[in-house]
Design a protein around this nucleic acid. Structure first.
Length: 466
RNA sequence: GGCGCCGUAGCCAAGUGGUAAGGCAGAGGUCUGCAAAACCUUUAUUCGGCGGUUCGAAUCCGCCCGGCGCCUCCA
């Protein structure tokens, strides 16, 4: 079966191929850098990371653009409260975002772009819309007239015909013809950051940045546009309207949206305030890999219930995979190659790939992986697994990790050197030979304090980092 | 009111017409000086409830119950 994704636009799973057959041009809505990102944000970014990793696995080149929203109402408000310029204020959170992103092993998009550095692109796009009659001005602000774009609502599948203008929204405080019209350019307000432009002094509306930057770097029609489900309306809907009104071409072929997560079965939102940041979880002793694993294990289109118990389970599951990898790398298997096991390895890889091709079914992909691990562990116990089977097994594991990226431990104790570890282990082996188990256990305990676990196997001692 | 999603073992979760993957936790066992690791056995005759369609349904249809989302800033 071909690679396929659920497309919000069609509400169906569709086969995916990039327009030019080679390079996937993808735009994702990045963070608004007004605060630390929380795990809800990270779920979306992690699912997009899995998406881009899988596209690359399938042989495509990536041209992935992610924006940084560094000017909006909250930023203006918060920076003013902190007595900083918006640039000073957002620099701190942008830096924190990239630190967090790298902790959970998000690949860096090919292009990162800041809204404040693309004001000219936005102005030009607004001018194009003005010339074509899609806009109107009111008190220095410029609005998009949704009644001029008949397909408005096609992404979010909302139908507005029956609704009276202003029926649901308090339109008094806006100088809009229709309450659902949205602002492209906001007139300057006293004390607020503004740009002097041909449109007059002011700042961009929220939606225009994504259209302007996406089209600037990716052209008028993107292969994929992704974000969290809450962005479908109005953000993405408005992007569709303004972009397609300007170009007359489809803005994005695939719209891929990640479901929200819940925390301990409660809804989570910035406004509700019940959210964890990555830093909170590190403080509780959880590793970045555990967070990544937990976020990645539930398919992106399903709500994920984030719990601390789930994080512990994730940590244990990762341990199991690491132990398996260690066993593959350290065991002296009998010579030869078991054909049945080679076939089983190929089959496991195929199951893994088919699961990922199927709209990124990570749960199924993990199932295929663990099933294989259990079966080959058994084969190792019975001696059926031979030295010649190791390369293919390691290859499968490497492929798994090229997507999930959890096998490499991220915390390494630097207070003890390799030489010291080896020396202590040698001493312990001697102590054991002399049946001085007290000394042997003492050494094992001491190493454990450095996060090193010593294991006695049939073939001798081996150690690993916890 | 409109649109959409979900409800599978203690927890997480796959499976969308052919007789319940996987992970974690629990119990027992093998191995071990003790551990660790690994393996084995065990844990849902059943998939929110009630009807219907079918040779056959967790999977399709109807109704009901429960949870969530969007229609307003939000990943």
């Amino acid at each position: 079966m071909a690679l396929r994704f659920y497309n919000t636009l069609s509400q169906q799973v569709e086969n995916f191929t990039p327009l030019d057959g080679k390079t996937v041009r993808m735009y994702t809505c990045g963070p608004t850098v007004w605060n630390y990102v929380h795990i809800g944000n990270l779920r979306t970014f992690t699912s997009q990371d899995i998406l881009r990793r899988w596209l690359q696995y399938r042989g495509y080149q990536m041209m992935h653009v992610m924006n940084i929203t560094d000017v909006d109402d909250r930023i203006i408000q918060q920076s003013a409260a902190a007595g900083k310029s918006i640039y000073e204020y957002t620099a701190e959170y942008e830096k924190a975002f990239f630190e967090d992103a790298s902790k959970v092993r998000l690949q860096r998009p090919e292009k990162i772009c800041r809204a404040t550095e693309h004001i000219e692109d936005m102005v030009r796009l607004i001018q194009t819309l003005e010339k074509q009659g899609f806009t109107y001005s009111s008190e220095g602000s410029i609005y998009f007239r949704i009644s001029s774009f008949p397909e408005y609502g096609k992404l979010a599948h909302l139908h507005f015909e029956g609704l009276k203008a202003g029926a649901r929204v308090d339109s008094d405080k806006y100088d809009k013809d229709n309450a659902r019209d949205f602002v492209l350019w906001k007139a300057r307000k006293e004390g607020e950051h503004f740009w002097e432009t041909p449109l007059g002094p002011g700042r961009p509306g929220w939606h225009i940045e994504c259209s302007a930057m996406a089209m600037r770097y990716l052209g008028e029609t993107l292969d994929i546009h992704a974000g969290g489900v809450d962005l479908i309306f109005p953000h993405h809907e408005n992007e569709v309207a303004q972009s397609e009104a300007a170009t007359g071409k489809p803005f994005a072929r695939f719209w891929i949206h990640t479901e929200h997560l819940m925390v301990e079965s409660q809804t989570m939102s910035k406004s509700a305030g019940n959210f964890y940041t990555l830093r909170d979880l590190f403080d509780r002793g959880f590793s970045p890999e555990s967070v990544r694993y937990l976020l990645a294990q539930v398919p992106y289109r399903k709500q994920l219930n984030f719990t601390l118990e789930g994080l512990k389970a994730a940590a244990t599951a990762i341990e199991r995979l690491r132990n398996y990898e260690l066993r593959l790398k350290t065991t002296k298997f009998a010579e030869g190659k078991n054909v049945k096991i080679e076939e089983r390895t190929a089959q496991a890889l195929k199951s893994f790939e088919e699961a990922m091709d199927d709209d990124l079914n990570t749960a199924e992909a993990l199932g295929a992986t663990f099933e294989y691990v259990r079966e080959t562990n058994t084969a190792m116990d019975t001696g059926e697994f031979l030295a010649g089977n190791v390369p293919a097994a390691l290859d499968f594991l490497a492929k798994f990790d090229s997507i999930f990226a959890v096998l490499e431990p991220s915390t390494v104790d630097q207070t003890i050197s390799l030489a010291e570890i080896e020396a202590l282990i040698a001493e312990r082996t001697q102590a054991k030979k002399a049946r001085n188990f007290q000394r042997a256990d003492e050494i094992r305990q001491r190493l454990l304090e450095h996060g090193i676990v010593v294991e006695d196997t049939k073939e001798g001692v081996r150690w690993k980092r916890k």
